[in-house]
Simulated assay, not measured.
Amino acid sequence: MSQNKFKLVECPRDAMQGLHTFVPTALKVEYLNLLLQVGFDTLDFGSFVSPKAIPQMADTAEVLAQLDLSSTSTKLLAIVANLKGIESAVQHQEVNYLGFPFSISETFQQRNTNSSIAQSLNTVEEMLSICAKNNKTAVVYLSMGFGNPYGDEWNYEIVEKWADVLVSKGVQILSLADTVGVSTPEKIENILPKLISKFNTTEIGIHLHSTPLERSKKIAAAYQAGVKRIDSALKGFGGCPMAADDLTGNIATEDVIGFLNAQGAELNFNMVKWNEAMVLSGKIFR
């Protein structure tokens, strides 16, 4: 990957999943099809999880069937939380990536996937095997990567230990996730360079949540840390519905684009389609 090449992952699934009002399938499809034309590396478009847990994503398969992939190079990523979801996701040829949230907080792993860390590690191993057989790539999110509000022990050594375990299992893409917005620029600049250096054959990404006031500082810190894979969501919408009640939104994609453009990064995005998506988002996020 060249010095200026960044992989931006747009996350409308993360943005929409916590909405209490169900977004009509046709509106989701219209929104996602616009985002597919922008030029992102990856679109986190939906999830194969229990509709009881995340009602907003109950129509993921129906949405997928209506996406226009004929003129886009953007890859599709679907979130899964258990073996059933993994087996469902790999049935769809259009899906390139399966993303699994692996928490280093036992409390949050139970809360998010109704399984222990040990059970989730087994799920990751099964996912890696199934992905290999079905020409898919696994993306593992190391959630609670910057701390957690549940009182579980957290330090850099714990982060590194689990990163080591996951990479040794065969994980090729590892994204450090700040599920509840507790990261700081200092933590980002301290943790990420160490991981990138130690696991230099693994793609290390970042999935940050933040208040609007802290977004730009965190984006700059991630850039300084050498991160080349960045998750974000249009206007910073979203947050994890399984996390703490005081949710912070995603990093805003327009802030990432603006920052990287100022640094001379090669994005080559279709900003006309991006602006159309910005306008349409007003019908979804009310």
Rank of each mutant, 00 (worst) to 15 (best):
Lys84Asp: 09
Lys84Met: 13
Gly85Phe: 02
Ile86Val: 15
Ile86Asn: 00
Glu87Lys: 13
Glu87Gly: 10
Glu87Ser: 14
Ser88Asn: 09
Ser88Lys: 10
Ala89Gln: 03
Ala89Tyr: 00
Ala89Cys: 10
Ala89Met: 04
Val90Tyr: 02
Val90Leu: 00
Val90Cys: 06
Gln91Pro: 01
Gln91Cys: 09
Gln91Tyr: 06
Gln91Trp: 05
Gln91Ala: 14
His92Thr: 07
Gln93Gly: 07
Gln93Asp: 07
Val95Thr: 03
Val95Lys: 03
Asn96Phe: 11
Asn96Glu: 08
Asn96Ser: 12
Tyr97Met: 06
Leu98Met: 02
Leu98Cys: 03
Gly99Phe: 02
Gly99Arg: 04
Phe100Lys: 00
Phe100Val: 07
Pro101Ile: 04
Phe102Leu: 08
Ser103Asn: 10
Ile104Phe: 03
Ile104Lys: 00
Ile104Leu: 05
Ser105Arg: 05
Glu106Gln: 14
Glu106Ser: 14
Thr107Leu: 07
Thr107His: 10
Thr107Ala: 12
Thr107Ile: 13
Phe108Met: 10
Gln109Val: 06
Gln109Pro: 01
Gln109Trp: 05
Gln109Ser: 11
Gln110His: 13
Gln110Cys: 05
Gln110Ile: 08
Gln110Arg: 15
Asn112Ala: 12
Thr113His: 04
Asn114Asp: 14
Ser115Gln: 14
Ser115Gly: 09
Ser115Met: 15
Ser116Phe: 08
Ser116Arg: 10
Ile117Gln: 10
Ala118Phe: 06
Ala118Arg: 13
Ala118Ser: 15
Gln119Val: 11
Gln119Lys: 12
Gln119Ile: 10
Gln119Leu: 10
Gln119Met: 10
Ser120Asp: 12
Ser120Lys: 05
Ser120His: 04
Ser120Tyr: 05
Leu121Met: 15
Leu121Lys: 14
Leu121Pro: 06
Leu121Thr: 14
Asn122Lys: 14
Asn122Cys: 14
Asn122His: 15
Thr123His: 06
Thr123Tyr: 03
Val124Thr: 05
Val124Met: 04
Glu125Ser: 12
Glu126Cys: 11
Glu126Leu: 14
Glu126Gly: 07
Met127Gly: 04
Met127Gln: 12
Leu128Glu: 02
Leu128His: 00
Leu128Tyr: 00
Ser129Cys: 12
Ser129Gln: 06
Ile130Gln: 01
Ile130Cys: 04
Cys131Ala: 06
Cys131Val: 00
Lys133Asn: 09
Asn135Lys: 04
Asn135Val: 09
Asn135Thr: 08
Lys136Trp: 01
Lys136His: 04
Lys136Cys: 00
Lys136Ser: 02
Thr137Ile: 10
Thr137Arg: 07
Ala138Val: 01
Ala138Ser: 09
Ala138Asn: 02
Val139Gln: 05
Val139Asn: 05
Val140Gln: 00
Val140Thr: 03
Leu142Asp: 05
Leu142Trp: 07
Met144Thr: 07
Gly145Asn: 11
Gly145Tyr: 11
Phe146Val: 11
Gly147Tyr: 10
Gly147Ala: 12
Asn148Thr: 07
Tyr150Thr: 03
